[in-house]
Design a protein around this nucleic acid. Sequence first.
RNA 1: CGGGGUGUGGCGCAGUCGGUAGCGCGCGGCGUUUGGGACGCUGAGGUCGGAGGUUCGAGUCCUCUCACCCCGACCA
Length: 578
Amino acid sequence: MRMSSLFGRTLREAPGDVELPSHKLLLRGAFVRPLGAGIFSLLPLGYRVVRKAEAIIREEMDAIGGQELLMPVVHPAELWKETGRYQAVGPELTRFQDRGERDMVLAMTHEEVVTDLARSEISSYRQLPQIVYHLQTKWRDEPRARGGLIRVREFTMKDSYSLDRDEAGLDTAYQTHWHAYERIFRRCGVAFHVVGADTGMMGGTASHEFMAPSPAGEDIILLSPSGDYAANREVATFRRDAPPAEDLLPVEEVETPNATTIQALADFLGVPLARTAKAVFFKGDSGRLVFAVVRGDLDVNETKLRKACGEPNLTPATAEEIRAVGAEPGYGSPVGVSGAYVVADESVRDSPNLVAGANRPGYHLKHTNLGRDWQADTVADIASAEAGFPSPTDGAPLTAERAIEVGNIFKLGTRYSAALGATYLDDEGQSHPIVMGSYGIGAGRLVATVAEQRHDDKGILWPVTLAPYHVSLLWLGKADDAETVGAGDRLYAELTAAGVEVLYDDRADRAGVKFADAELIGCPIRLSVSSRTLARGEAELRPRAAEESTFVPLAEVVPTVQRLLAELAAPLSGDPAS
RNA sequence: CGGGGUGUGGCGCAGUCGGUAGCGCGCGGCGUUUGGGACGCUGAGGUCGGAGGUUCGAGUCCUCUCACCCCGACCA
């Protein structure tokens, strides 16, 4: 490709309101352009990168027996009503009507459609297992699109679905995808952790996320130093130390003026946070007030709490709602409360004689005990794990990292097949719902993640597997210097003929402009010729990641570049690093 | 949806007390220059996000509205 005719110009400065490095660089490098909030066009350079990522995904999906198909973006709402998601999912699902006033939705995912296909195509155990996948546009009307390409509303996603006879088959498909995903991300040069995750709105029995560490990430993952534990903070657990046994003391009311926060209370009474009980109030969609109690040194984890109380949505309760069940904001405790669903964390069950609110302003109760002074509807793990907490595996302190979710795998089970009646007959003629899994990778997010993880202050450092072109070729000097331009033209022709993808900077610009653009765009190899190098019959070769150049005789440029490309590709084979 | 911020030429920005819009980069032409974002001359390009209002006069003041960005809520 000649840069003189490339569609899309590089920008010297990014728009002022752009913050993330990947967003800035993808904009400046003429990879993407915004059309609206969370809606982007891919320019030729960006689309080449995305297509390379998609090609890698296709290769690895095909390698595990996946069959590519394509499902529609517009779905009749009927299907979504059948699974209940039409009602259950909020405004991020875009609903509209066609001219016949039939309810339709824009696909935010494709479980319904693939299950509908399965019920019509699959009838016998002989037709299972199957893996089908597609790369399709999805639309999710995010309440807030942010982070450039990391979180968008319209995006292309690879979704695959496994169809199996039973749980054992699903386990196999799940593991198979797990390994394929590891290969995909390694080939794309992404650093990642696989973590246990919440099953969320998808429903299902197990889920893992592929998390790429980055300050731009929206999730927090917790990792044990030995590497044997990794989880999204939403579900992360930690080892709980048994508090020393203690005799139960009688409840005692104490005056605690202005001690409306746990910290203030602990300071006022001179006790550690761990000797207090913290009450947090939520309201569920059912209208129920959910009363969560954790030890004062811990925080409530809303994801865990949602699961523990069976409320898919929780919002903080208002002061009036809290008083309606007999509690007092700032001085709340479950003692004497009625009409609320009380969820106690295990820490509260296990710790005796905690200080808790007296449910009247300015007073707390010392020595409260679960079971004696109050009852919980549920005792569960509803506390958030934090950096430094002991790992559930070996007790070593967990570390916390911010990360971008680049892929996820879900065991759906029979959630969708049962709802839609996607069944098969086994060898005894018995009908069973198909056991399903779903597995996603956002192509654009993957590319943005690579840019986020692999850049310097000058631009992106694309892995050779994703780079829009392998080589940035530039001539330096005067546009009317026939020798230099001719040498550039010849190298462009030779490299292209040898199958090397070349972005040829044939513009009549000064050296600084060409170098800066080459670094910004980030092809793995930069080749330049000038009267200076040509006087010695050489070209200058500089890997994007290197500080130093080497000089290569013109006749050896093609084999040298090919050798270097092979070297750069070697660690990106997809096999585990040794 | 709550909090904060920004809208002035393609991009980055300035615009004072209300007086009829400017700078840098980029873009076109000519000339010089040519290994790290050149220089000179000369051009083109703006209903100041939109609507309404106050005023002799609004980029500037008031009201409403739209868009975008950041934080939070929410979310795979």
